[in-house]
């Protein structure tokens, strides 16, 4: 191939691939974003009906004395100390999942309850997910810095 044509071919190729990539990224961003809410934010945005089709993430603290584990199926309540949401989860809980701990549950809403496909806690017991910390601060129930 002559260098002159080669440059043309290469530039066309680059533009095509970047174009396709942009298209893929835009499509994927439209469909696959998961929004994060605290229980109270969710109430403010959607009211009591919680008519949400997409997957979402709810972050907050696990309410004390709310965890029931039966046959590997877990039920618990996420709270930001203002509002609360009941969560059903059928999977392995992370080791740092416990009452009073900040966690994030990801899933879809069915009849006002979150059917979680994933429950996330962190590697470090001193750690609070930033969204959860911010949500708690916003609602005025932040218990001070957890980090020593």
């Amino acid at each position: 191939m002559k260098p002159k044509y080669r440059r043309l071919v290469i530039i066309t190729l680059i533009i095509t691939i970047l174009g396709i990539a942009t298209q893929l990224i835009l499509m994927a961003l439209k469909d696959n974003i998961i929004y994060f809410y605290s229980p109270n934010d969710l109430k403010l945005k959607y009211g009591e009906t919680k008519n949400i089709k997409n997957k979402i993430r709810i972050g907050g603290l696990v309410l004390e004395d709310s965890v029931i584990i039966e046959n590997n199926k877990t039920t618990f309540i996420i709270t930001d100390r203002i509002h609360q949401i009941k969560v059903y989860f059928d999977g392995s809980l992370p080791d740092l999942f416990r009452e009073g701990q900040g966690i994030i549950a990801e899933g879809t809403f069915i009849k006002n309850n979150l059917i979680a496909s994933q429950v996330l806690a962190k590697h470090d017991e001193n750690y609070m997910p930033p969204e959860v910390a911010e949500a708690l601060k916003k609602n005025g129930v932040w218990q001070g810095d957890i980090k020593q």
Partner: peptide, 8 residues
């Protein structure tokens, strides 16, 4: 606040 997961 959003997160982008494996689907993307």
């Amino acid at each position: 606040k959003i997160s982008i997961g494996p689907a993307y």
